[in-house]
Design a protein around this nucleic acid. Structure first.
Lengths: 184, 184
DNA sequence: TGTTGCATGTAAGGGGTTACATGATTGA
DNA sequence: TCAATCATGTAACCCCTTACATGCAACA
C-alpha cells in the first residue's frame, strides 16, 4: 500500500521515468524504501489510471517509448491525505538479530567474523549517507520546510543514526563472540 | 526462508506448541522476528516432514489435539549451518522515514503530533525490552555463551539501542516540524 | 567485440497478512 | 452470559523478488 506513496513522494519533487525511480531508490536513498523496476512500472500505470499521475511519451533508446511521469493535483492531494494519517508500524525482520538470538548454538569464531563484516558494511553505508547530506548542504536544508531538501535532511538523519546504532551493535556482538570463542 | 530458522532457534531452547511460538513472538521478542499462527502451523509441519523437528500429541482444549514440537539432532545441525552463513541484508521499509521524506508536502502541525506519538510508543517498547533484560539478569547473561540467555542478551541489546535511536530521531523530527509550523 | 547504461514491460513463485472455521475452559 | 485464553488449521489475497524478454548507444 505504501509503494504508491513512495512513488508520489518522488514525483512530487520532479518528473521521473520508471527506470529513473528504480535507480534512485537503489543508489541513493535505499534508506527509506526500495522497489524493483518490475514493481515500479505496473504501479506507475495504476497511478495514471487513478488520475494521480500523468505521463508524456518520447522516443526511447530501446524498442519501447520513454515515459516521463508527472504528479497531478489529485496526486498531490492524495499524498497530503496519506501524510496526515499516522504511520503504520511493522515489526522488523532482521536476520542479524535472529542469528544473534540463536548464537549460543553456533560457532562463535565464525559468527564474530560475520558481525565484524556487517559492521564494516554499515560503516560504508553511513559514509554514503553523510556524503549525500553534505551534498544537500547539511543543516541548511532545514531552512525552508516547503522544499524537498527538508525531507531529505530528515530521512538522511534517520539513515545515519540508524546505521550508527547498527554498526556499534555489530561491533559489540563481534567482541562478545570473540571473547566467548577464546574462553573455550 | 528465515521463518524456519526462527522456529528452529525457538525450539532449540525448549519444546513449544505452535500457539506458544506465535504468542512469544508477538508478546516478548517481536524485536527480531514475528509470524502469524497461520504461517507457523504449516511451517512446523514442514519441519517435521524434513526431519528437523518432531512432535508429541496430547489432549487439547479444542477439537484438535495439542502438538508439542521438539527439535531433532538434524534440526540443530541445520541451525548451526545457517548460523555459519553471513546474514542477508534486506533494505528497510519504514513508513515513518517515507513520510518524513515527503513531509515538505504535508501539514507540519499534524505530522509533528504523529512523530511525538511515535516517540512515545518507542519509549514504551524500550521500557519493555529493559524489563525483559533485567529479568534475564542483565550482563550476567553473557557469562555462559552456551546458554540461551547469551542470545537473549545480544538481541535485546539490539532492540534497546535501535528503539533509543528511533525515539530520539522521532523527537528531532517532531521538533523540526513544530518549528516549521510556527514559522509559517 | 563485449559490457555497461538507458529504457520498458511480463510471468512465476515465495512470503506474509487477514479472514474464515471450530470448540472447550475459566473468569468477570 | 459474554469475553478472553488456549489450541489448530485452511483460503484468499497482496506485496515483493527473481527471472525472462527486447534493443539501441556509448565506451573499453
Amino acid at each position: 500500500m505504501s509503494l504508491r506513496h513512495a512513488l508520489l513522494a518522488l514525483l512530487a519533487e520532479q518528473p521521473h521515468t520508471g527506470y529513473d525511480i528504480g535507480r534512485r531508490m537503489h543508489e541513493t536513498v535505499g534508506l527509506f524504501w526500495t522497489a524493483q523496476h518490475s514493481q515500479v512500472y505496473p504501479e506507475l500505470a495504476k497511478l495514471v489510471g487513478d488520475g494521480l499521475a500523468g505521463f508524456e511519451s518520447s522516443a526511447g533508446p530501446g524498442p519501447k517509448k520513454k515515459k516521463t511521469y508527472t504528479i497531478t493535483a489529485a496526486g498531490r492531494a492524495a499524498l497530503r491525505d496519506w501524510l496526515s494519517e499516522p504511520a503504520g508500524r511493522r515489526v522488523p525482520r532482521d536476520e542479524l538479530v535472529l542469528k544473534a538470538f540463536a548464537s549460543w548454538v553456533g560457532d562463535k569464531q565464525l559468527m564474530a567474523e560475520h558481525y565484524r563484516a556487517a559492521a564494516e558494511q554499515s560503516q560504508r553505508q553511513l559514509a554514503t549517507y553523510e556524503r549525500i547530506l553534505a551534498g544537500i548542504g547539511g543543516e541548511e536544508a532545514l531552512a525552508d520546510s516547503q522544499r524537498p531538501e527538508f525531507g531529505w535532511y530528515l530521512s538522511l538523519q534517520r539513515g545515519i543514526t540508524a546505521q550508527r546504532a547498527l554498526r556499534d551493535w555489530c561491533e559489540m556482538v563481534a567482541a562478545q563472540l570473540d571473547r566467548a570463542a577464546t574462553k573455550d
